[in-house]
Simulated assay, not measured.
Amino acid sequence: MSGTEKKQAGPGVRAMIGLAVLGALAVLAALFFPDQFYLWAKAIHIIAVIAWMAGMLYLPRLFVYHAEVATGSPQSETFKLMERRLLQIIINPAMTITWVLGLWLAWKGFSFSGGWLHLKILLVVAMSGLHGYFSKAVRLFAEDRNEKSARHWRIMNEAPTVLMIVIVVLVVVKPF
């Protein structure tokens, strides 16, 4: 490396820096704007949900493409890297933030009451289960042990969408 070249931080480091900044902003909001912290928590929760869903919608699409290439091929190795980074750098932290702030918001804003909220939490548990299923798939693909077809992953690609639609309707409409 020449004297003019600079080593750049990897994607994991950049993601951790982003999470640290988000956490610091949340702490500052709680300290300096305690009466508005609920709104700040809600905003950060929504940002985390969007990031989680973006990853949950993209990961099974990567699986579709990955299932169609030969094991050990350069394309397969690229997909392994993409899947692992997406899961570890975006999806896992976003899900964690979603759960932590979501539970706090449910307690602070609704005292865990309302049938719509109970159903929403149940569906978020289902989304988390799907997240676990996708996490296992990332591991199996990394070990060249995927046994699922591209068709299976095309079908699984729809599951997060369906869950997300029902969850959003519950939150906005609060039907019961």
Rank of each mutant, 00 (worst) to 15 (best):
A24D: 03
G102M: 01
R84V: 07
F134L: 03
W107L: 15
G55D: 05
T98D: 03
V169C: 10
I17V: 14
I121E: 13
K174Q: 12
P60D: 05
Q88K: 07
I50W: 02
E77D: 00
K42G: 03
I44N: 05
S128F: 13
W107T: 04
E68K: 01
S76H: 10
E158D: 08
Q75P: 00
Q88I: 02
I46D: 12
L163M: 02
G12C: 02
W52T: 08
S76F: 10
A9M: 07
H45W: 04
L62D: 02
F112E: 09
V21W: 06
Y133M: 07
A137H: 07
V172S: 09
A20L: 12
G10P: 01
A43W: 05
V100A: 08
W153S: 00
L25C: 15
L19T: 11
W116F: 09
D35Y: 11
W107Y: 14
V21Q: 00
I50G: 04
M164S: 09
L28S: 13
M156R: 08
S111G: 10
T78G: 05
L39F: 11
A106Q: 11
G10I: 11
P175V: 14
R14T: 11
F112R: 06
A9E: 05
L101D: 00
E77L: 15
G115W: 09
I155R: 10
L163Y: 02
V168H: 07
L31I: 14
A15C: 01
A9T: 03
L57K: 06
V173W: 15
S113Q: 15
V69I: 14
I155T: 04
G55F: 04
M56C: 09
R154D: 00
A54P: 08
L170M: 04
G114V: 13
T71V: 15
V100F: 06
S113M: 12
F63A: 09
A126D: 05
G129W: 06
W153V: 02
V171Y: 00
